[in-house]
Each structure stands twice: as C-alpha cells, then as structure tokens.
Amino acid sequence: MEYYEIKPLVAGELAEGTVMDTSVHPPIVSKLHFEFAGWLGDALVTSFPCFLVTEEAKRGLLSIGITGATFADAEVTTSEDFHEVQPDVELPPFVWLKVDGEAGQDDFGISQELNLVISERAFDVFDDLLGLSSADFWEFDGGSE
C-alpha cells in the first residue's frame, strides 16, 4: 500500500480553551479548542499539533476500519475575521483526529518531520469528499518515528 505525507490547510488556530503540555515537543494536547479563521471546504484541517476532520470524513474513515487514529470531541468556534470574510459560510461539524499510529504502517501516523502520514485508502476517503483540495501532499518515503 502507498502512503502520503500531507500538510493540510491551516484553517485556524488553537484557542484559549485548549489545554496542552508545552514542556515536550510536539506538545501534548489534552483538550482542544479550535478557532477557524477561514475555511475552503477541506474535510481535513490542522493547527500544529492537532488535526480536525469533518463528521462526514470520520464516518467514512470508520467505515473502512482505519488504524492509527481515534476521534474525540473538540470545541470549534469561528473568529470575527471568519464572519467578516466568509459571512455566508456555515461550517460542518468537525471532530478531533488524534493520531497515534506508526507512519507507513498504520492508516495514520506522524513523520519524523512531524507531518501527517496517511495510507492510500484513508487518502481515498478524503479524495471522495474532495476534502484535500487545499492540502499539499507527496508520496511518503518510508522514514518513520
């Protein structure tokens, strides 16, 4: 199976409700509050070190039995800029994608460069949803943590 290293769109930032331990790198987040600054329709977005996916993408990923990630609730809000620049955009529900797998072995993992690595079958779920249109991605070379 092929794997892809991916840099999803940074659609916002970790907001004040986020709880994380910054004494380690990458920081360990125990509670996520994500504030969208804008959204271009992608089903996968990020703000280091966290990833969020739409509920629709979550359902698709669970239907194929993905490995290397779990899902958790996140507080999701939008910034004033979001409302000014995209007043007619309504966000779909998003959930936290918590990656804990081995890059190049599980469907989700983190590369040595701290980029997300996803399997071809997970990629196909996002591709079917047109959910990676703003992401940069390339074939994963096999190096893993």
Score class of each variant (00 low, 15 high):
Phe82Thr: 06
Gly142Val: 09
Phe140Trp: 15
Phe123Asp: 01
Ile28Arg: 13
Glu139Asn: 08
Glu35Ala: 13
Glu102Met: 12
Phe94Cys: 02
Ser79Met: 00
Phe51Ser: 04
Asp21Tyr: 13
Ser79Glu: 12
Asp88Met: 13
Gly12Thr: 07
Ala72Met: 11
Thr54Asp: 08
Gly17Pro: 09
Ile66Val: 14
Ile64Tyr: 10
Lys31Ile: 06
Asp42Val: 10
Leu62Arg: 03
Val85Tyr: 15
Leu116Thr: 05
Leu130Thr: 03
Met20Gln: 13
Gly41His: 04
Ser111Thr: 04
Gly38Ala: 02
Val85Ile: 14
Leu114Ala: 02
Ala15Lys: 03
His83Ser: 14
Pro92Asp: 06
Asp88Asn: 14
Asp81Met: 11
Val19Met: 12
Ala103Met: 01
Glu2Ala: 08
Leu91Phe: 05
Asp106Asn: 10
Arg121Trp: 08
Leu132Glu: 01
Glu55Ala: 13
Ile28Val: 15
Ser47Asn: 15
Thr67Trp: 03
Thr18Asp: 11
Phe48Thr: 00
Asp128His: 11
Lys7His: 10
Asp127Glu: 14
Ala15Gly: 01
Ser63Ala: 15
Pro49Ala: 09
Thr22Trp: 10
Val29Gly: 09
Glu90Arg: 12
Phe94Met: 00
Ser23Val: 06
Ser133Leu: 08
Val125Ser: 06
Phe94Arg: 07
Leu114Tyr: 13
Ile66Ala: 01
Phe123Gly: 07
Thr77Arg: 01
Ser47Trp: 15
Val45Cys: 05
Leu132Pro: 01
Gly12Asp: 07
Glu56Trp: 07
Lys31Cys: 06
Asp88His: 14
Gly68Arg: 00
Phe137Tyr: 15
Phe36Cys: 07
Gly101Trp: 03
Gly109Gln: 07
Met20His: 06
Leu62Thr: 03
Ser111Asp: 09
Cys50Ile: 02
Glu145Gly: 04
Gly12Trp: 12
Val85Pro: 00
Asp73Gly: 12
Glu55Arg: 12
Gly60Leu: 07
Glu16Cys: 09
Gln112Pro: 13
Glu75Ser: 10
Asn115Cys: 03
Val95Ile: 05
Val45Thr: 04
Ile118Trp: 00
Thr70Lys: 00
Val76Gln: 07
Ser134Val: 00
Ile64Cys: 08
Asp81Pro: 01
Thr22Ile: 12
Leu130Lys: 04
Val53Ser: 10
Lys7Leu: 14
Gly60Ser: 02
Phe34Met: 01
Val24Met: 12
Pro27Gln: 05
Asp21Val: 07
His25Cys: 02
Gly109Pro: 00
Glu113Gln: 10
Phe48Trp: 08
Lys7Ala: 13
Ile64Met: 07
Leu97Lys: 02
Gly41Val: 12
Trp39Lys: 02
Pro49Tyr: 08
Leu9Lys: 06
Leu9His: 14
Gly104Trp: 08
Asp88Phe: 14
Asp42Trp: 14
Ile118Thr: 01
Thr54Cys: 06
Asp21His: 11
Ser133Gly: 09
Ser134Lys: 04
Thr54Phe: 12
Phe48His: 11
Thr18Leu: 10
Phe140Cys: 07
Gly143Cys: 05
Asp42Thr: 03
His25Thr: 03
Pro87Phe: 15
Gly65Ala: 12
Val99Glu: 03
Thr67Phe: 05
Glu56Tyr: 12
His25Gly: 00
Leu52Ser: 01
Ile110Asn: 04
Gln86Trp: 15
Arg121Asn: 04
Lys58Gln: 14
Arg59Val: 12
Asp88Cys: 02
Thr78Lys: 05
Ile110Leu: 06
